[in-house]
């Protein structure tokens, strides 16, 4: 089966080779967990390693911030833009939504002209600005995602979780995880007075995937996903316990 490799060490292995083409992946996490970095890395490797031009759609961060943040990882986004392989488009959810619905809209024309294959939408949670109604939000997100797929794009969409540790999320209420194909969770985890980062592929429609909760780091080269957390449980609660402690709690202290 054809795969769209993210180029992220460890993640493609979890995804059994990469994402499926023309699918939408939601990357959800608290501020600073690395959602945007993961998305930028997906776009960067797509262009540089796999010859797939990409678009970044940003609803809040200025393109200049993307250029700067990417440069910190050694990714020259300005040069890629000059070469016509990347476009960082700043817009708003309402404009991009209307644009995707329009015939010959900016995204459609851009994707065709560049031959874009990948897109990062940062972030889908800004669609919450358009409506308070969860059903309406689900409808808007569904239409938007289908518009991206129609253009032949494999999409990573970030979702901002307001909870630093533990379980969110507002997205569940609107049923966003149901309308996307792949769902990746990024979490802070407290283990013995130290904060680590965890990554879990919770869902991947149409494919098997790794079910482990893996530790990851944001290195000077971008995100690197390591081995699974050993000897702990309750990782996704944000506060992991040693498995032996849980055993004692469950059986010995009764």
């Amino acid at each position: 089966m054809e795969r769209v490799k993210t180029g992220i060490t460890g993640l493609d292995e979890m995804l059994r080779g990469g994402l499926l083409p023309q699918t939408a992946t939601l990357v959800e996490g608290a501020p600073g967990t690395g959602k945007t970095t993961l998305g930028m890395q997906f776009i960067y490797h797509g262009i540089v390693d796999y010859g797939e031009p990409g678009i970044i759609l940003t609803f809040e961060q200025f393109p200049s911030q993307f250029y700067r943040d990417a440069a910190n990882f050694g990714w020259d986004f300005r040069r890629l833009e000059e070469e016509g392989k990347l476009r960082v488009v700043m817009t708003s959810p309402e404009v991009s939504f209307a644009d995707l619905q329009a015939v010959e809209g900016q995204i459609e024309v851009l994707a065709r002209e560049m031959g874009a294959r990948r897109i990062l939408v940062d972030s889908l949670s800004h669609f919450q600005r358009l409506t308070q109604d969860p059903l309406r939000l689900r409808h808007l997100a569904y239409t938007f995602i289908n518009g991206l797929k129609r253009e032949g794009l494999t999409a990573i969409l970030t979702w901002e979780s307001p909870v630093l540790l533990g379980q969110p999320t507002e997205g569940y209420e609107a049923g966003i995880p149901f309308i996307i194909d792949t769902y990746i969770l990024l979490r802070y985890v407290e283990i013995e007075s130290s904060v680590h980062k965890a990554l879990l592929v919770l869902k991947m429609r149409g494919s098997d995937h790794d079910k482990d909760i893996r530790q990851f780091d944001i290195t000077p080269r971008g995100i690197e996903v390591h081995s699974r957390f050993e000897g702990h449980e309750g990782i996704m609660s944000g506060s992991a316990r040693r498995m032996a402690d849980s055993f004692i709690q469950a059986f010995v202290r009764r």
Partner: peptide, 16 residues
């Protein structure tokens, strides 16, 4: 000039 691929409404541009 700094964000050459921006397309938005006056209201949002004002916000930026």
């Amino acid at each position: 000039g700094e964000n050459p691929h921006t397309t938005d409404t006056a209201e949002n541009i004002a916000r930026y």
